[in-house]
Design a protein around this nucleic acid. Structure first.
Lengths: 338, 338
DNA sequence: TTGCGAAATGTAATCGATTGCATAACTTTG
DNA sequence: CAAAGTTATGCAATCGATTACATTTCGCAA
């Protein structure tokens, strides 16, 4: 019922000064064992809990990290969040979440989170920030860590963690080629997105390496959504010279694509082989199970958090880390029929 | 390069006291217009940002709310988080996220978030907390708001927001019945879960109302996962008297179920009609598109946040709010084939 | 012009922990 | 045994905003 006990209370009960209590709690080895016990006992008796607001003020640390998503409702990010959270909570940090859309909508500046001592650093999963926002962040990141994960800013000075988009893409195309496909299309991500570029460029490069013809209409632009896949399916259906394989820039696209084809009575992989990118949980259980390039999302998250925390502790080599991907062969791909 | 300006700095530049600056910022109408302008100008010149740690300490508010998930990697929660975030950020609150698993693993107590001034309140999406944890939360919630969303604690004293699980379930069964099905199975959620109970009980009640026979083996227990659906499919295949329709406690279960059936060359809805519960984004694009009971997850989140915020402002009627669900008819259901 | 209430502003204590510096207690050493 | 060095503890300033209370200023009526 009474207000929560403070350091003062603990000090009084233990018969020592607040300085000693504080030291006992944060750096036990500098106090005498007997004092340590008295304090530990007083803490137990009083049910003392540290007041983080007070500590945060004094230490100039928020002990929390902001994670910025492009879109909270997108399930692609869940596993990444889990990875981040694991790393953060192991070090006693909390995870704040916000989405670009909403920060923008509420009229706040992103950099405020850093400037107003709400967060000590930031993990950004959105490579689509406007140049001004990136600019203010670059300034802020002279003193506060900002790390990109999955996506990144071209020519930006931020460290980042990402998957081998290039190698994954090439492996996918090569795999389709080895299955016997020569007419391969790509459904790309949203215009201007770094991932979209990385994957599209790698796709073009690999097609060239394999000396495969690429009709312009086989390069479909979209975004990473289900609906982009659906629209691409309509496009595919309308083609006179249909590619026999399609490499989608995300699993969601692939789902939308296959779903729409199926609605129109086309069969995957009989009529067209389809590959995705990501390997989200459902891919294994889609109908047909989706061949895809697997990203280790949890590890992506853990790694991003580690970079931020290391940076906060002074180890600032600001690396760009590229994590391996794996080609997963399932039943949405086969050799071309005849 | 220099340190961020404080209220003091603004006061000095504007030629007024810190008290006046503070009032200008938090309650502008009590200061004279001319002063207001001086202060506004000083804020602009100095680039002042409030230090939240300091404000939090003084006001005894963290201006953030903890959202507790059972499992961060589960995409079902994404849309709920979005709803929560919208409501919170509109009122200047931040959203902290943690998962039951990890809080537990890190040896922290859940209630610490409230006790150590990290969060002003809590939204819990996990009805599976242990009774001790619930107990400590109940104590804490004398002073701090704790609200359950989606799931809840039976006989607990927490307000909650949830969907019409009962009505949704009955509507699903009735719909299958109206299509002509009389042999209907249910794949339930995890043992001990309140949602699982609510839906199973409603299922049993409706079967009784419709005077349909229910063989014990038609009541399959599982959890809400894809894999539970896969296992249930094996069970279904092995039955001698197979139900012609299956009502799954979640869309994920339904996906797993259909996926496995499809792998074994059964057709949905020809061989069996399948319904889900939730209407997650992908349901519309699954193959076949899934008939299901739609929960408004965004609204669930918004409402939960609203209850917490109202409570913080003193409006404490602590309501239990039950949101309407909608029956969505798609192609995973049809009349039984003879 | 004086006086009084209302409006505007200022002074300084406060929130609760951390930490530089000073001091006390205790060891070691010549 | 005294001097020097170590170790343990305490004192009090500090982080940066908020706010109760005191004081000043202003407007208006008599």
């Amino acid at each position: 019922m009474q207000k929560t006990p403070t350091l003062q209370d603990v000090a009084r009960i233990a018969g020592v000064s607040t300085a000693t209590v504080s030291r006992t709690l944060s750096n036990p080895k500098v106090v005498h064992e007997s004092t340590r016990e008295k304090v530990a006992n007083a803490v137990r008796v009083s049910g003392y809990r540290i007041n983080r607001a007070a500590r945060n003020l004094r230490t100039q640390r928020a002990h929390s990290i902001l994670v910025l998503l492009p879109d909270l409702a997108n399930p692609f990010f869940s596993a990444i969040l889990e990875g981040i959270s694991i790393s953060l909570s192991a070090k006693g940090y909390s995870m704040l979440i916000a989405s670009t859309k909403q920060v923008h909508a509420s009229g706040e500046q992103l950099v405020d989170y850093l400037d107003d001592a709400r967060a000590d650093g930031m993990i950004v999963l959105d490579g689509g920030l406007t140049p001004e926002v990136v600019g203010t962040l670059e300034n802020a990141s002279d003193s506060k860590p900002v790390v990109f994960a999955c996506e990144w800013i071209e020519n930006g000075k931020f460290p980042s963690v990402r998957s081998e988009n290039r190698r994954g893409t090439k492996a996918a195309v090569k795999y389709l080629y080895d299955l016997g496909h020569t007419k391969i299309a790509h459904i790309a991500g949203p215009e201007g997105n770094v991932l979209m570029h990385a994957r599209k460029d790698a796709f073009l490069a690999e097609m060239k390496t394999l000396q495969l013809e690429l009709k312009p209409e086989w390069l479909v632009s979209g975004d990473f959504s289900l609906d982009a896949g659906r629209i691409a399916a309509e496009t595919w259906i309308a083609m006179h010279d249909r590619p026999t394989a399609v490499f989608c820039a995300s699993d969601q696209i692939a789902f939308g694509f296959i779903s729409e084809l199926s609605r129109c009575d086309f069969k995957v992989p009989k009529d067209v082989s389809v590959m995705g990118f990501d390997d989200i949980e459902l891919s294994e259980r889609f109908i047909p199970p989706l061949s895809t390039i697997q990203q280790d999302r949890t590890r992506l998250g853990k790694t991003a958090a580690k970079i931020v925390l290391d940076w906060l502790e002074g180890k600032s080599d600001n690396p760009t880390i590229i994590l391996p991907v794996t080609l997963i062969k399932r039943e949405s791909t086969s050799g071309p029929s005849n």
